[in-house]
Simulated assay, not measured.
Amino acid sequence: MEEKQITIKKSSGNLEPFSSRKLKDSLRNCDVSSDEIDSIISQVIPQLYDGISSKEVHNKVFPLLKKYDRISASKYLLKKGIFELGPTGFPFERLIAALLMEKGYHATVSVVLNGKCVTHEIDVLAEKDRNTYAIECKFHSHPKDVSNVQVPLYINSRFLDVQQQWNFDPKKTTHLKQGWLVTNTRFTIDAVNYGKCIGLTLMSWNYPKNNGMKANIDAYGLYPITVLTTLTKKEKNQLIAKNIILVKELVKEPYHLNEMEISPGKINKILLEAGQLCRTKL
């Protein structure tokens, strides 16, 4: 099919040419079969127009994908699903802590530590191989929001204050080695360059390349409950209020659904989708 020469308005406000290859790659990353990808592309392209937003494209693709494969549709919702973990940053912190634990760290959320000068609340404190890491989670509710260089500057100053106190405390049994900064959107180039220069580990939606948030969530199957297509927004919020953040947590504690106004038939559909998603890794 001949490519339509149109521009897409990204969430950042920037315009870029529409690329069916990028859309195909996005669907392929969600484990969609080649035949299904071709069918979806052939149905979506005629609906596109010059200046259409990336959100509108997503909204046209999703119902078609959901019709073919509900599990792939759940994965396609991942970026949006993370935004829906807000408005507070705590569920996002829980997600990052869970990811670190999958990587072999012992992780604790919301820890207050004394610095040399003042006290600081650390979003996630992680320990592995007698080294400790202080992780700051910068959650954004909108894709337009980015973390500029001021954010790692501030995070690094807090880390250094805590590090001076921690590593000179004879009661500590680990070395406070490094600060990390994690965001669900993206960093500016200056923020990335500053992080590299001072040794601050950065992670965003797709940074570092092939090792960003999306890649790790897919690799470990750590999907938030907000990607489940069988749940309404109200039901997702109710589960988050019960501190059920991850799909795998819902699979382990399905009784939470019985406490909500959900029919037995729908509960079965929710748990079927959740179970399949937990078993599927890219």
Rank of each mutant, 00 (worst) to 15 (best):
V112L: 13
Y154E: 14
E261C: 12
A241N: 13
N268L: 12
C137D: 07
N14S: 13
S110R: 15
V111S: 04
D69M: 05
E93S: 03
V162K: 02
E261G: 08
G212R: 08
A98F: 06
Q276N: 06
A134L: 08
L65E: 02
Q163W: 06
G195L: 04
F139V: 01
S74H: 03
Q47K: 15
D169Q: 11
V149E: 12
K55R: 14
V151I: 14
D190Q: 14
L282N: 13
L202Q: 00
S20T: 10
K242F: 09
D50K: 09
C117G: 09
L65C: 03
V162D: 01
W166L: 04
Y154K: 15
V151T: 09
H175F: 15
S72Q: 03
L15E: 11
A98R: 05
D50E: 12
E261W: 13
K281W: 04
H142F: 11
V146Q: 10
I240S: 00
V247C: 00
I267A: 04
K10H: 12
S12C: 07
D123T: 04
L125P: 01
D145T: 07
L176P: 00
E253F: 12
H106S: 13
A97K: 07
D123R: 06
E249G: 02
K248D: 15
T201H: 13
K236H: 10
D35G: 05
L153W: 10
E56I: 07
K55C: 05
V124N: 01
I270D: 01
F90E: 14
Y154R: 15
A274K: 01
G221M: 01
E127P: 02
R130G: 07
N156Q: 13
S53N: 07
S263T: 15
L222G: 00
H140Q: 08
Y49G: 02
P17R: 08
Y194G: 02
Q276L: 04
F159H: 02
L78A: 02
L246S: 05
T230Q: 09
T173F: 10
A134F: 08
E235C: 01
I245M: 08
I245R: 03
Y133R: 00
K248L: 10
L246N: 04
K79N: 11
V112Q: 15
A107T: 05
K266T: 13
S204G: 07
K128Y: 06
N211H: 13
N59H: 14
N184C: 04
A73N: 00
K55M: 09
V109E: 04
S11A: 15
N131W: 10
K80G: 06
D145H: 08
N131H: 13
F159P: 00
E84K: 13
H140C: 08
G195R: 03
T108K: 15
M1A: 10
N131S: 09
S26W: 12
L48R: 05
G179A: 15
I122M: 06
